[in-house]
């Protein structure tokens, strides 16, 4: 883990910042605030530099200046007028860029989203129900779960009688889904803690290993 002075300094700083962040669990304090501000500052700075070198320079500056593609000034101008959002008087000008962007995004995304997030998902719930093997039974569960969850979101008829029972099954189906999501979220958060603890263990082992 620590091979030279440089890695020793950076790893020690990382260990210190890890403790700073964990100190929030006791209560808010200046050490936590310092670490939090460093994370925000570094992320914003890194992203700004990345956008400049991977976005602005190759996508606008180089085509105009090095390749003489003057028509790139049009999207450049559309980008520039977005800054008028900060002026009350001239903010209407930014609507040209926004409408252009919205038009493209809608044209590209809407047909594909309907196809992939609605039609494909719908067709994958139209499953053969049988009892020859467990898969057929699970298909039945999927069909019932989807229908009942949809009934729960049908508000034009009061949830009473058969409709009410189906809506209740729908709620249970949703709860199972939320439970799975919550369980996996706990797993994810614990994984982050595990990573930090293993990091600290390795850090202390490499610093104090020769003493212990």
């Amino acid at each position: 883990m620590i091979t030279d002075l440089s890695s020793a300094i950076w790893t020690t700083l990382a260990a210190f910042l890890t403790f700073c962040i964990f100190s929030f669990l006791y209560k808010d304090n200046p050490f936590y605030k310092i670490a939090e501000h460093i994370v925000v500052g570094v992320s914003a700075g890194y992203f700004a530099v990345l956008l400049y070198w991977d976005g602005l320079v190759p996508k606008l500056w180089d085509p105009i200046v090095k390749q003489g593609k003057w028509y790139y000034l049009i999207p450049g101008l559309l980008g520039l007028i977005m800054w008028t959002r900060f002026s009350k008087k001239y903010s209407w000008i930014s609507r040209f860029s926004i409408s252009f962007y919205m038009g493209i995004a809608t044209g590209v995304a809407v047909p594909l989203y309907i196809q992939n997030y609605v039609i494909r998902q719908l067709s994958s719930t139209m499953l053969p129900v049988h009892f020859k093997n467990p898969a057929g039974f699970f298909n039945l569960l999927i069909v019932i779960g989807v229908l009942c969850a949809l009934i729960y979101f049908f508000f034009s008829k009061e949830h009473k009688g058969a409709m009410g029972s189906a809506a209740k099954v729908g709620i249970w189906t949703l709860m199972v889904g939320f439970g799975a999501g919550f369980g996996l979220t706990v797993m994810g958060r614990v994984s982050l803690l595990i990573d930090r603890v293993i990091f600290l263990k390795n850090y202390f082992a490499s610093v104090f290993g020769h003493i212990l």
Partner: peptide, 22 residues
Amino acid sequence: GVMTADYYPFLQSGQLSGLLGG
């Protein structure tokens, strides 16, 4: 882990061919 449950429907529909969760 947080995202895993969201992507199981895509596995079932065949839009995803495999999934590793967390």
